[in-house]
């Protein structure tokens, strides 16, 4: 009961502090929201790529696209002689075309697709060796296999992680400075009050609590904005990406969607940590009780 009453009082003081801060509230929240949006976007992209990479990387499949006029049966027979090849599945161009038309609204032109062989291997270590060997077969126009793409995607992800980390870190630092200034102004405006409270035995936590909560509410507000932005982007961008990937690598099927919830949680935690941490640091620095 007593603790509850104290918390209620601290919450009221927080609201008073927020009112006192006026326009600088919005400055803090905007900068923090931008930082969190970038951070969340990078995080979400990284997670998705990781997912894709791990599902592709484990796939023991190579797609071989045949030159026009080559007989799929003959080529399939040749390929099945190669060691480590388990199954060779023939996808005639008519079938692939029909499937594509059922998935997308494709203009009724002549079938542009080649005959395709899906080569399944028994051993992941053999993927690249076999790929090299397939390239030498004259009847094959070109090949694609997820492992190679996965490698490239991974390189991109590593770059993204570093860039994202640098951007988030510098924006967070900027946010800390702005939060520090805002809280410092609040502290200055109630310098006398703080002195009086401290002299009358009010505990430091009661004095600092509202300031830290003020920072935490910046974090919450900014995280909410960032999450909404990310959600909207996700809503518009995802179907597009999906189509791109499907048309690029039809055999991988539908991507596993790992959802935005974990990202939102991390964004919220980071926002509150930066907000509350920034004001805790500032009040620790300027309030000597």
């Amino acid at each position: 009961m007593r603790t509850l009453r104290i918390l209620w009082r601290i919450a009221r003081e927080t609201v008073i502090g927020l009112r006192r801060s006026g326009w600088s509230n919005w400055l803090v929240i905007s900068i923090l929201a931008i930082a969190l949006t970038i951070f969340g976007g990078v995080l979400q992209t990284t997670l998705t790529i990781k997912n894709v990479v791990s599902s592709w990387g484990s796939q023991l499949e190579i797609s071989a696209y045949l030159k026009e006029g080559q007989d799929p049966q003959t080529v399939a027979r040749t390929i099945s002689q190669i060691p480590d090849v388990q199954i060779v599945e023939i996808v005639p161009k008519e079938v692939a075309w029909a499937e594509m038309q059922s998935h997308y609204k494709v203009a009724a032109v002549n079938n542009p697709l080649p005959n395709t062989l899906h080569v399944r291997l028994s051993n992941p270590a053999a993927v690249e060796k076999t790929a090299e060997r397939l390239k030498t077969i004259g009847a094959i126009e070109h090949i694609r296999y997820p492992l190679k793409l996965a490698r490239n995607l991974n390189k991109f992800r590593q770059f993204l992680e570093i860039a994202g980390l640098v951007i988030t870190a510098s924006l967070s630092a900027a946010t800390l400075i702005v939060i520090g200034n805002t809280i410092h102004l609040v502290i200055q405006s109630k310098q006398r009050e703080i002195e009086i409270l401290s002299l009358t035995g009010v505990s430091p936590w009661y004095i600092k609590g509202p300031l830290i909560l003020q920072g935490a509410s910046y974090g919450t507000a900014a995280a909410t904005i960032a999450s909404s932005v990310l959600w909207v982007i996700h809503l518009y961008l995802d179907p597009y990406l999906h189509d791109q990937l499907l048309s690029f690598l039809p055999m991988t099927g539908v991507l596993a969607d790992n959802g935005l919830l974990p990202t939102f949680m991390v964004v919220l935690i980071l926002g509150v940590a930066v907000g509350a941490g920034g004001s805790a640091w500032t009040s620790g620095r300027y309030i000597k009780v």
Binding site: R2, R5, R9, L197, G201, V202, Y206
Partner: peptide, 10 residues
């Protein structure tokens, strides 16, 4: 009342 309230007195 301030100090009493800060101490959570009802």
């Amino acid at each position: 009342a301030y100090v009493l309230r800060a101490l959570g007195v009802d």
